[in-house]
Amino acid sequence: MLLKNTYNELLKIATKIRSYIGIGALTLLIFIVLFAMKADGKSYVGFVTASFEQTLSFNGKILNGNLIAFIIMQMLIVHVPLLIALVTGDLLSGEEASGTIRMLATKPISRTGIVLSKWIAATIYTFIMTLWLGFLSLFVAKWMFGTGDLIVLNSNGLLILPEADLAWRFGASLLVAFLALWTVATLAMAFSAFAKNSVGPIVSTMSVIILFTIIGTLDVSVFDSIKPFMFTTHMAAWRSLFDDPFPTGEIIESVVILTAHIAGLLLITLVRFNKKDITS
């Protein structure tokens, strides 16, 4: 019954226009970045290497598909949560807003089953979005710009990773990015369990992300104790997969914290939906 209901939920997602807004916006954004890089990518690279250009010269193909994929992931991982929340924030509250929740509750499936099937559908949607992000940023960028070593840009300097060392890093970083987006999807669903319309959960999810991100970037010691536990701190964990030496401990910590958030938020959703007085 759970699988059948999950299938139904996937069909519901597939028939909603807003589901394609996310994928369409993601595609458009990536193609804008690809076009911009094709048109003026060299000046972007020059901007990055400018600090060293007086003393050193960089030989080889710096502007390649791997760098473009990294830049796209860096730019979009911040914005993709909004596109995810657009769909997952509607899953429970949308039923309430359209008045179908009572009918849904009369089906021979427990309330826990309803939440889980919606959550699994949200997970599949998030996974498809992540795969689409990976496909466009990696394969299309490589097709357009070719391949090569990757210059990783961070505030401590530049790290050059050899091409042969990149496939697994990109694969693993997409998995960690998926985990972060899955957390956002579950958060939006948790808000959705409390709301009666779709706008509230979407706005609330984005507000939480913005608030936590601002707290995370503030160099104030008063927040130091809570920063490691905020999921937004670990949303950029995918970047750690491009560090050298490889920070295994940091990545495991991020995976654990994100997984704990997913489990906690799912539990809150389950408790709330099971206790919900469905009157609409």
Binding site: F47, V48, S51, F52, Q54, T55, L56, Q74, V78, L153, N154, S155, N156, G157, T213, G216, T217, D219, T233, A236, A237, R239, S240, E250
Partner: peptide, 24 residues
């Protein structure tokens, strides 16, 4: 042996918000 000038990487380009405490 070459002189290396001060490295400046704007955060908008680097955007590694996790690395606040490890700046060289």
């Amino acid at each position: 042996n070459v002189d290396i000038k001060k490295f400046k990487m704007p955060k908008s380009v680097a955007s590694d918000i996790r690395n606040n405490d490890k700046k060289k």
